[in-house]
Design a protein around this nucleic acid. Sequence first.
DNA 1: CGGAATCCATAATGATACTG
DNA 2: CAGTATCATTATGGATTCCG
Lengths: 144, 144
Amino acid sequence: MSAGHTAVTASGTADGEPVISCETPQDECGVRDVLDRLGDKWSVYVVVELASGVLRFKELQRRIHGGISQRMLTLTVRRLERDGLVKRTVYPTIPPQVEYELTEMGHSLTHLVKSLADWSIAHRPAIAEAREAYDARPAEDVRT
Amino acid sequence: MSAGHTAVTASGTADGEPVISCETPQDECGVRDVLDRLGDKWSVYVVVELASGVLRFKELQRRIHGGISQRMLTLTVRRLERDGLVKRTVYPTIPPQVEYELTEMGHSLTHLVKSLADWSIAHRPAIAEAREAYDARPAEDVRT
DNA sequence: CGGAATCCATAATGATACTG
DNA sequence: CAGTATCATTATGGATTCCG
């Protein structure tokens, strides 16, 4: 729609606060658009694993951290396929063989995932520290 | 815990594919670290709204797309505070007044959120298209 | 092998009422 | 205003079984 690109005008100002302004009327920023899609526990992992190349169902399942259930992998991969992030190719052989790979769009997401990973790694210590401090804090830090 | 191999070591670098290399030994990529924190529906929205400046509870709630419940806002904001992404200041006045603002770390996340938003906006049409195509597709695209 | 279908446990979220 | 507490409802994820 008008979505053209209301773009997220971030003013990466020096010391000023980075501002995100969303002008998209129909449904805000579209952030939700992405997060809804990547918000589930597994999508990102599938994208990450598929970033390295084509994988078959079983192999994909085996690689995913923590062990995703068959059901969830199917659901996840289907949704990604529907959204055009993953391409699914079925070879009607016996036994059947299905290959999954990222589409162009899927690959473009890889970048973002990497950024997220980088941020996470960079701030993990700080977050852990913040948590300890928070948990140790006895009362509220009220402003007198 | 450490599910053995930690690396994603992408290989398809031939034509300059975006590569994700995770060397973090503790627990895979750390992608999960971020997604777990941002994975819930609301955290990102709170960060987005707070990116523009300091907000009080009610005001924050009012701004959030779709209308977050009191309960969820409280939980979300608490978690963000605990993780050191948001700073909460209580003024023991009557009626009480509580202000929320991003911390330095919170602001640094703003960038990523912006990237997500940009990606989302840029690919929304393509995704919508992919969905239509998928839903319209009668049978499987089997490789003969 | 890849997946669909079913049943079940639990986590996430919403709605509502109550409090300092 | 800014929560906290409770209850009801989903959404999500796992285990199992069956099928082409």
